[in-house]
Computed example of a mutant assay.
Amino acid sequence: MHQLMFVNLPVEDLGRSRSFFTEVGYTFNDDFCDGSALCLELGPTLHAMLLDREHFASFHDSRVAEPGTVETLVCLSAASREAVDAVVDRAVAAGGTDVRRADHGMMYGRTYADLDGHVWEVMWMDRDWTDRGATRERA
């Protein structure tokens, strides 16, 4: 249905956010970065626009959530359990906070909060298990 996804998040300090997410292993599309916004590339068609709080507020008429307030939880997939750990470990090493770990066998995830308190869940799902489950349901 959709071609691209952009999630918009307010941040306190664009330079600090760029450094943090670079250390986590992400890149930025500088064609969409300026003094009030960074375009964080999460995948070929997945992006997070990190906007300074004033610029973020210009997109709506509601009060901007205070830093550290969870207003959304962004969930991203990973190729393996090890990849989940690698991303979250890098985020924590860069100054993020390790929030939680969930291991359900066929699904494994860890969650971290970035420097502005935004919550990022990184998860892996065993595709063989989900394919088997779908086959069982159709039978």
Rank of each mutant, 00 (worst) to 15 (best):
E66M: 14
D126H: 11
F21R: 01
S58A: 13
F59K: 03
S36T: 13
T69W: 01
E12M: 12
M106I: 07
H118F: 05
H104F: 11
E71M: 10
T135C: 00
E82W: 03
M123Q: 11
D114F: 01
R136F: 06
R16A: 11
S80C: 08
P44E: 14
L50D: 01
D114L: 03
S80K: 06
A113W: 03
V74T: 12
G109Q: 11
F32K: 04
A65I: 08
V87H: 02
V87P: 04
R53T: 05
R81M: 04
L4R: 11
L42N: 02
Y108A: 00
G133T: 11
A86G: 07
P10H: 05
R90P: 07
R127A: 14
E71C: 11
R100W: 01
M107S: 13
R63P: 04
R100C: 01
S58W: 02
A37L: 11
C39V: 12
R81S: 04
Y112P: 06
T45W: 01
D13L: 08
D131T: 14
D30A: 15
L51C: 11
P44T: 11
G95L: 06
V119C: 07
V84C: 05
V84N: 01
D85S: 14
A86N: 08
R18T: 03
L76K: 03
A94N: 08
A134F: 12
G133V: 08
E66R: 14
V92K: 03
G15Q: 10
R63K: 12
S19D: 15
A48M: 13
M49Y: 15
M1A: 14
E121W: 01
A79L: 12
E12Q: 14
P10D: 10
G35R: 06
T130P: 04
A93L: 03
V74H: 07
L38E: 05
E41K: 09
E23M: 06
S17I: 08
H118Y: 03
P67M: 12
W129L: 02
A139L: 09
V88R: 00
L76V: 14
F59I: 02
G133I: 05
L73D: 10
V99E: 06
G43I: 09
A78N: 01
D52K: 01
F32Q: 04
D89E: 15
Y108L: 05
F21I: 08
T97K: 13
A78I: 07
R90A: 14
F56K: 00
R90Y: 00
V84A: 01
R110D: 09
A57D: 13
A139I: 01
V87C: 10
F32P: 00
V88G: 07
W124N: 08
R90L: 03
A91H: 06
D114C: 07
A102L: 14
G133L: 10
Y112E: 00
H47L: 12
D61R: 06
A102E: 15
R132C: 00
L42A: 12
M107E: 01
L14A: 03
W124T: 03
V11K: 00
W120V: 05
D34N: 15
Y26S: 06
S19R: 13
L14F: 09
G43A: 10
N29F: 06
H47W: 10
F28K: 02
D34K: 02
R132N: 03
G68L: 11
D13F: 06
E12D: 12
E41S: 07
Y26F: 15
M125P: 06
E121C: 09
